[in-house]
Design a protein around this nucleic acid. Sequence first.
DNA 1: ATTATGGTTAACCATTAGGTTAAATGTAGA
DNA 2: TCTACATTTAACCTAATGGTTAACCATAAT
Lengths: 108, 108
Amino acid sequence: MVNHNRPLDLAFGAFSHPIRRGILSRLAAGEAAVADLARPYRVSAPAISRHLRILERAGLLSRRKQGREHRLRLEHRRMEEAQRWLDEQHALWNQRLDRLEKYLKENP
Amino acid sequence: MVNHNRPLDLAFGAFSHPIRRGILSRLAAGEAAVADLARPYRVSAPAISRHLRILERAGLLSRRKQGREHRLRLEHRRMEEAQRWLDEQHALWNQRLDRLEKYLKENP
DNA sequence: ATTATGGTTAACCATTAGGTTAAATGTAGA
DNA sequence: TCTACATTTAACCTAATGGTTAACCATAAT
């Protein structure tokens, strides 16, 4: 039951920081360059650069160099995998709660 | 745009390890004691104990001592908050893709 | 050819994660 | 009471996060 799922590890790890979540939200609205993504935060450029590296390693975004700027865009596939895991959990515990409720209804 | 959301940070951080996800899955099926949760994994008891602490600190499970064993159960509220964040992202990028599709349909 | 801009890499620091073994705690059973 | 069991805490190690400043690389603008 080792169930090694490195992509999911990386994706959830990436979600665990507010700046990275902010960047993903921003990218949901469409492509952007590093400077655009950095603007809202009061951290240094290298800090942003590393957040981007973490997101990229997790497969949550991809980059293409266009002139001197890097344009980032969301990769929703990986995002959806994470969502799927949470949905599954939700289904699991709901299923259990439903059974419980049914049992209580039948055994008053 | 700092948007500090510590609970979400902790929840996603907690999801980022396969053992912790396994534990949550197991708990979706109902309450369990520490030893039950540890059984599938080949790590020491202290290791499990710390995974549990991380899950607990993230508000994803609660514990009650019953005799000498600790019974853990899922706290789905926090789990649902995380799910909600992903759902929102999904909605955001879908909305954008829909607009794009519509645009392409109207400008052939 | 210089300079400015967009971004990353290097080197450093402090904190946390993830594991180990050994020792401590609290409860149950003989 | 002595022992066995369930679990945590302590002490230790290594690796990864998250931030900094300073230096670097590539492209654009003058």
